[in-house]
């Protein structure tokens, strides 16, 4: 029988415990707790989920079920520059899928993954409310509109020296 070991830094552990306490250890607040923890850590690794389950006295499998159900939550650390491609209806019909393919090709990663140097991560989302600019790409807080596949290389080069 294996012995599960959870490795965390003390301040991380404390932050998770404080967050659970802030929400009164209420299992119904699980999603809010996970939001706050993802904001803090950038992602929700298994260690974080184990501690949350333990604090709320609910099965880890349930926490994992919620994390894997909602596309907002991720177990993969985001890159320094998270790239989000809008695949909402307007962007999609204006060729967003080709833009996505180009990003995948340029970065050599799949959707939901990060580059080995953790510089970029690639994700999709549904509608950022800028349909007039379709297709739209967001890198961090910066928005790029009317992106064409040929622009992708240029956009990425903006971050080359960082």
């Amino acid at each position: 029988m294996s012995h599960i070991k959870i490795k965390l830094h003390e301040n991380q552990l404390q932050f998770i415990k404080d967050t659970c306490k802030e929400f009164n250890y209420e299992p119904g607040e699980l999603i809010n707790i996970l939001h706050k923890l993802q904001d803090k850590f950038g992602y929700l690794p298994s260690e974080v989920q184990e501690v949350v389950a333990n604090e709320l006295k609910i099965p880890t499998a349930k926490v994992f079920g919620v994390v894997t159900f909602y596309s907002y939550f991720t177990m993969v650390p985001k890159g320094k520059y998270p790239i989000n491609i809008c695949l909402g209806t307007a962007c999609y019909v204006r060729g967003a899928e080709k833009i996505l393919d180009e990003f995948k090709k340029q970065l050599n990663i799949k959707v939901g993954e990060s580059t080995p140097d953790s510089k970029f991560s690639l994700n999709c989302l549904r509608c950022v409310g800028a349909c007039g600019l379709a297709p739209v790409v967001m890198i961090g807080e910066k928005t790029y509109g009317r992106v064409a596949p040929d622009d992708v290389k240029k956009i990425l080069s903006e971050y080359q020296n960082d």
């Binding site: 029988m1 294996s2 599960i4 298994s46 989920q49 184990e50 389950a53 609910i58 099965p59 880890t60 499998a61 349930k62 926490v63 994992f64 079920g65 894997t68 159900f69 596309s71």
Partner: peptide
């Protein structure tokens, strides 16, 4: 979950990918 309160199995992922599995889709032995 309800009867045995072991909390090993839960539905994870969504849509076509969904499956009943232990946390992190680990083996039952873990």
């Amino acid at each position: 979950n309800t009867v045995q309160t072991c909390g090993v199995l839960s539905a994870v992922n969504r849509g076509f990918m969904s499956v009943v599995a232990p946390a992190f889709e680990q083996n039952l032995d873990h």
